[in-house]
């Protein structure tokens, strides 16, 4: 009886069902604790500013999910997002008339950076973890060339629209829903199915006639494109450009923190880092959980050092919790 339950649990785990359960539980817990610590958590102001702060990491985690599903990883994602955001803000100069151009540039830079990553991984056949690490330097360097100091102005219409709400639903929440819709389209497409096939077993995929290299390149291009959206969300949320936004704590590693958080969100969301299993739905949940956890630590009035410590410990605990059903499987 218990044996069967465990087995169905592990089967469900592989199909991505149980992580869904874990993510939902964690989500409910973090929301509940947030509501307890901040009495006005459900006020419209608080809801809007919370959702506004979720979008960048949500977009980044979808980007990372797509790359990870295809069997890769993108350590340059944070740097690429920062690069798109500074390119875009430098072009905008606070002029609403240039907004369409700036949006196109942010998305275009993301996609182009992704293309470069994809070509290097697929055709130079470098291991994704080192190739994208090396590319993160390239993106970081260009970022500093474009905008060495925080600056630039986003047109007011962008920030006000972003913090607006439509019939009671925050625009930022609609953006998240839209991003999920886009992911759903990707997942249902031929490319999406091939993505899972390549991430699951590239040799089998190749033998079945999937253009493995093309799929791999496309996974990075799509990832970069979602990264461009993350860049726009950062701009809309903060109102100006900053080369050090999302940089790793204590280091000048551009976009480092964003990259790390996106990977943590993917793992909490139940997508296997070896590829082929999972989906962006869980990662979105993971991103929101991470944001809510840092809220909790902030609300609890915990001072700097302990905040860091607890934040890290909670992330590890969440990861451990995600892994519990796999406990009885073969050792590491």
């Amino acid at each position: 009886m218990i044996d069967r339950a465990v087995r169905s649990l592990t089967v469900g785990m592989r199909r991505g069902l149980v992580p869904g359960l874990t993510v939902t539980t964690l989500l409910l817990i973090t929301v509940a604790v947030n509501a307890l610590l901040a009495p006005n958590f459900f006020s419209s102001y608080s809801v809007i500013s919370n959702f506004s702060s979720f979008v960048p990491l949500v977009a980044a985690s979808i980007a990372q999910t797509i790359v990870v599903l295809g069997g890769g990883i993108d350590l340059s994602l944070g740097a690429l997002i920062t690069l798109s955001s500074v390119m875009s803000v430098v072009l905008m100069e606070g002029d609403p008339g240039r907004l369409p151009l700036a949006v196109a540039v942010a998305i275009g830079v993301g996609a182009a950076g992704g293309l470069l990553n994809g070509l290097i991984v697929a055709f130079l056949r470098l291991q994704p973890i080192v190739a994208t690490f090396a590319m993160s330097f390239v993106f970081a360097g260009i970022t500093l060339k474009v905008l060495p100091q925080p600056g630039g102005q986003v047109p007011a219409v962008m920030t006000t629209t972003y913090r607006d709400s439509v019939i009671g639903i925050p625009v930022a929440a609609l953006v998240i829903a839209g991003l999920y819709g886009l992911w759903w389209v990707v997942k249902r497409s031929t490319l999406g199915r091939h993505l899972y096939a390549v991430g699951g077993d590239e040799r089998a995929a190749y033998a079945s006639g999937v253009r493995v290299n093309q799929v791999r390149v496309m996974s990075y291009v799509l990832g970069g494109t979602f990264g461009g959206v993350a860049a726009l969300a950062i701009l809309a949320n903060t109102g100006s450009g900053d080369p050090y936004v999302g940089a790793a704590v204590g280091t000048a590693l551009i976009g480092g923190q964003t990259t790390l958080a996106s990977i943590a969100a993917v793992v909490i969301g139940g997508t296997a880092l070896r590829g082929g299993v999972g989906g962006a739905g869980g990662s979105i949940g993971g991103a929101v959980i991470l944001a809510l956890v840092s809220n909790i630590v902030f609300f609890a009035g915990i001072s700097g050092g302990y905040r860091q410590l607890i934040n890290g410990a909670i992330v590890i605990a969440a990861l451990a919790l995600t892994a519990v059903p796999a406990f009885r499987r073969s050792p590491a």
């Binding site: 793992v267 905040r307 860091q308 410590l309 934040n311 890290g312 590890i316």
Partner: peptide, 17 residues
């Protein structure tokens, strides 16, 4: 069974704290 990449990443925040 936490993936090494993520475990050691999370540990960075803990050690920083």
């Amino acid at each position: 069974r936490i993936p090494p990449l993520v475990m050691t990443l999370g540990m960075i925040a803990v050690v920083q704290g």
